[in-house]
Amino acid sequence: MEAILRVENLTYTYSAGTPFEHSAVEGINLTVLPGEFLGIIGHTGSGKSTLMQQLNGLLKPTAGRIYLDGRDIWSEPKEIRKVRFRVGLVFQYPEYQLFEETVYKDIAFGPTNMGLSDGEIDRRVRDAAAFVGLSEEQLFSSPFELSGGQKRRAAIAGVIAMEPEVLILDEPTAGLDPRGRDRILEQIRDYHREKGTTVILVSHSMEEIARNVDRIAVLHRGHTYMDGTPAQVFARAEELMSIGLDVPQVTKVALALREKGVDVDPSVCTVEALRQELLTLKGGGGAC
């Protein structure tokens, strides 16, 4: 399948040419297929946000290229705004970017910038609000009256409303309570399933990534450290732990079981999968 996003040898250096020079991303190669749900995971400061801001042209790579649908996004620097409409990026802590009088107007900011008709804007705003679970009443209240989690959802809706082909979410659940976190993830998952959009989810929680994505790329000090399906990645649990990343609880249980001599697949990453695994081992059927 033709890749929707292809990253070649991407390097980004902050404050180049000063004593504070610092390479946040070094020679990264990455391919994203259409309709894929990709997880990016890495330690604090591993360059995740820097990489993501280059994918939609907010940062210009120091070296390397980014192809969107086979076209270099910087081939026409004047057209970079169009790239931003096609690759929607939800920033880390996006609630701080809300500014309009009503949530409705704020969500409409992106579509309005795209120059769409009023009817189309209205449809998109309502669709996006429905996806993130904002009620009609909330839609016409001030964004500053919402709770933290609701603000976060309003901000995510603001990007979804542009109906980008690739939706990037940079740590959408940071600083939320477990329930708020699960709800947002669930809504993102639904959105991905219904729209078939390519989604890139950045996170440093393994649990979160494990349960949602098709493929995981692990970043470490600006390099891609691993790239594969969750099962492939978690099969190398020890390496992950050696670079300071956690593995899902279930994987830890499976690892512990193996040490005790139970022959389970160490790469299971959901409770359901481990259950199945154990049931098969027991000889199928019956409760555990």
Binding site: Q53, N56, L58, R81, R84, F85, G88, L89, F91, P94, Y96, Q97, F99, F109, G110, N113, M114, G158, V159, M162
Partner: peptide, 27 residues
């Protein structure tokens, strides 16, 4: 950071006349 976030939603700070540019600062 805020500028980047608004640019990601298509905000345009570089074109247009003075009034449009001033308005673009609101976000």
């Amino acid at each position: 950071k805020i500028m980047s976030a608004q640019k990601a939603r298509g905000a345009d700070f570089e074109s247009g006349n003075l009034i449009r540019r001033a308005k673009a600062l609101i976000p």
